[in-house]
Design a binder for these strands. Structure first.
Lengths: 149, 149
DNA sequence: GTTGATGCAAAAACTTTGCATCGTG
DNA sequence: CACGATGCAAAGTTTTTGCATCAAC
């Protein structure tokens, strides 16, 4: 859709090499997993670990934690704030439009949606403050039909 | 000192009694703390515990965890997952306008802003899906001037 | 009086870290 | 061939739970 994520262009080449960071098989595997699993999927560290083991890629849990933190700080992944029990992550990429979450505060059910006005608001806020935009996401907390009885 | 009591009785009285939930001194104390500490403050469970102990209110950590979860599910508190190491909570109230965060993914610096279009987007998304809206917050991830070198 | 809530302590879940070794750049 | 990254296991945090007791309704 858009190409607003300058930071993400040429990800593996320029991104992972900044600050003397190294491109390792483990990091590639984690990133590939997120790419293959698609947008809309929210994985915990434990799940990333399980997925990699299932695909015969042996990466330690400790490395996964270290890698997830790194990828978040580099802008490749987004740490979500919608679940109970542990953090979850999702891929950010040029190919995936920014999307937003409608979250039920009772059962945790989530629906995704897109909205250009929201993205525009994020763009403006970043620009006003001299920040370089990476991504915007709106969290709408609400109560779903099944929980509102 | 009388006013703070009134503020608390109203929401808890109507909210807490649904589903046979009970209004206990412990729950009042937790909500009271959030009321007094103000809107922009983000407390962890551990900090809530410490604050209550400091004010001579003895509430166990286990109860604080149970209470925080309850208050989130009832829409009185908002659970933030932006910080490393544990969840943080902030008060939601009609007196406080929904606000949004511009967050530097490198250093964590944040700027707050408001935007009516964003709130409208949240309202529409909730309505479309049959959810009952509680609150919307936009997180804009970006890189701040000092970190973009 | 019922039944939900609390406190305590133990357990579980989640995340980080020290250190020897490995491998990218 | 230096220095960042990894794996492992141990330690550190954070959160949940079982159970007896207590108290709100």
């Amino acid at each position: 859709m858009t190409s607003q994520y300058e930071v993400l262009t040429n990800p593996l080449g320029s991104g992972l090499h900044q600050d003397g960071k190294r491109l390792t098989p483990q990091r590639l595997k984690v990133l590939n997993l997120f790419e293959n699993i698609g947008a809309g999927n929210h994985l915990s560290a434990e799940e990333v670990h399980a997925e990699l083991l299932a695909s015969k890629a042996k990466v330690s849990l400790a490395t996964i934690y270290r890698t997830l933190r790194l990828l978040v700080q580099m802008g490749f992944l987004h740490e979500l704030e919608l679940s109970e029990g542990g953090h979850r992550y999702e891929l950010l990429s040029n190919d995936i439009p920014d999307h937003h979450h409608l979250i039920c505060i009772r059962c945790g059910r989530t629906e995704e949606f897109e909205n250009d006005n929201v993205l525009e608001a994020g763009r403006i806020a970043a620009e006003k403050n001299g920040f370089k935009l990476i991504e915007s996401s709106l969290n709408v907390r609400a109560i779903c039909p099944s929980c509102s009885t």
